[in-house]
Design a binder for these strands. Structure first.
Lengths: 346, 346
DNA sequence: CTGTTAGCGCATTCAA
DNA sequence: TTGAATGCGCTAACAG
């Protein structure tokens, strides 16, 4: 038998012959109850299978212990891992999750989403939306003067924003430096859409590594994809047509790397001998591509978990009227070396 | 400026010189308000940027317009699509989503999850957990006498369960019949874990199709995987060792199909000439495997959306004290033919 | 059409 | 240590 909705604190009080506040004290584990009455009340609670109405508690306390999560693009790899990470840590810290998904990042949707969460009295909002630079103009102001704390995922810090981010730039650098170390020299890049923060950062990492080799004219080595395999396919053709001497490609995610591999095959290029490829994400399939794909692994779950932890601190500070001085928290990615980038014949 | 938490219905009433009741009527779009006062009150609302406290409303109404979603295994393909489908339709129908993820399917976790949602007064629970047969013994009873309606995803109907499911059996049949039509005869299967409903159903579909060919001794053609690519790899070796005459494989998801392709390559088997492969799911990468993978496409989002619709009906019935007579709702999968299963040389 | 009264279930004052 | 009163913000039931 499940707790029946009808059993309230009053019923328990009556059955136990005590006042409702005593029951309240028991269910909140407060110490100002004699162990005798506590035991007694607890027994009644168990018998009646009473379970407190959190809605009523929230109203009374002015705090819901609920976090709002605004998400977007769950179909991109990693998004659901973030969510899993958020949920787990939130659960551990006693928070529930109100989920709001954006189908498009537009003013009306954003307003609806935020207002919906606010009117449901969430204690804080985690902005798990892939950050797009071009939207900032109208998006930024919406976050000002919000009545609850906000934690951002994967974007650059700005003002007092609290941000948790995967170090995508480092990832891009790791990938490129690995290729350089293997002896590849003309390393092209297939980036994601230019507005995406992740894409910009990964590219920046590639650029940093390349600059050290004295390469100039890097724009000829760059092609823009859309994260999907097809764009990696097309991308490699473009790159190859433009500079046939290219000997490696850093694809900014594994899907595009897969597309690039496909194109390479059709161009008669052997991987990794004629062309090396490194991806980004380490999707589970990457180890089973042909050849297996070197890539950058990221612990996305950790990003979600850390976001919740930061949120807790901010809420704490918020309630005490203190200021939370924010620094961006970085999670570090890791290079995974497989066959697609190991030079055989020097 | 965002609505300040402090602005309540009272403030609006005072500012507008009306009773709170009138304000309540306005914000609920009730028709028993003169258009004059409505306009007036609305103006005050806009000025004050008032937004109703949904928590208070829920307490008062005894209804939260919130659905609980219990999920598991977001890392498996499709899970997040279900979630997206659920969220979208829920949003359209005016429901919020309280998300609860299971890390393991164990009695304590399940209790916690369900009780958490119930004490937060959700109006219904969608059980989006991959159904595992072996857990039924202890899981089943937990769903009895629940105080709120329950809608299940992807399982067999039982008693009065309300279920929305992808027709996995049909999918298995489509895949197998396609192979037969192409002229393949000894069609092996790499299934998912035997406890999974999806795995059982896909296998049943294969079995149905095979039986029509008069094949017996089908167990020799069957191998059990764990949904991951590695198990498809191993699986194909096993299958091939056992019956070298095998000429096609139905892998019960695309990852295992990928693994099987890898193994086939090492065994020197040409796909699709020596060995045809069909997968299941149609993950975005499948079109870019080498060769591109024939597979079964499923509109998982539709499952989620339909689940919410069913939930609405059940809640309706529940509140009117009516009985909802449940039938399982099926979503139909679709065969996608690519290169991995098209016989070239007859 | 509008206002008054009451109460949703709980927690937070205060007294005792 | 316990209990009585009061209020969280809103809506339902009833008057007028």
């Amino acid at each position: 038998m499940r707790p029946n909705k009808k059993v309230t604190i009053k019923d328990v009080a009556k059955a136990a012959g005590v006042s409702t506040q005593t029951v309240s004290r028991v269910i909140n584990n407060r110490h100002d109850v004699s162990s005798a009455t506590r035991a007694h009340v607890q027994k009644i609670i168990d018998n009646l299978e009473y379970s407190p109405n959190i809605i009523a508690r929230s109203l009374s306390r002015g705090r819901t212990n609920t976090l709002g999560v605004v998400g977007y693009g769950l179909e991109y790899y990693g998004s659901f891992s973030v969510l899993t990470g958020i949920e787990q840590r939130a659960h551990e810290l006693g928070f529930s999750l109100l989920l709001s998904l954006l189908d498009r990042i537009e003013p009306d949707n954003v307003d609806q989403s935020i207002n919906g969460l606010l009117s449901r009295q969430v204690d804080g909002i985690i902005w798990a939306v892939h950050w797009q630079v071009k939207t900032f103009d109208w998006l930024g102001p919406k976050f000002e003067n919000l009545s609850v704390p906000l934690v951002f995922l994967n974007k650059s810090q700005r003002g007092n924003d609290v941000v948790v981010a995967m170090n995508n730039r480092l990832g891009g650098r790791l990938a490129t430096e690995h290729l350089l170390k293997q002896g590849y020299r003309r390393i092209g890049i297939i980036t994601g859409p230019t507005e995406w923060w992740e894409a910009k950062e990964r590219e920046a990492g590639w650029r940093e590594a390349m600059e050290q080799t004295g390469t100039n004219d890097m724009d000829r080595l760059k092609v823009i994809g859309d994260w999907w395999a097809a764009s990696g396919d097309v991308g490699l053709y473009t790159l190859y047509a433009r500079s046939p001497k290219i000997d490696a490609v850093f694809a900014c995610n594994d899907q595009m790397a897969l597309g690039a591999m496909q194109a390479a095959r059709r161009l008669g290029l052997k991987i990794p001998d004629d062309l090396a490829i490194v991806g980004f994400d380490d999707i589970p399939e990457a180890a089973y591509f042909y050849p297996s794909l070197s890539t950058i692994q990221q612990d996305v779950k950790a990003v979600g978990a850390l976001a919740v932890e930061q949120m807790c601190k901010v809420i704490q500070a918020h309630q005490n009227g203190e200021r939370f001085n924010s620094e961006i928290s970085w999670i570090t990615p890791k290079l995974i070396i497989r066959q697609s980038s190991i030079k055989n014949n020097q």
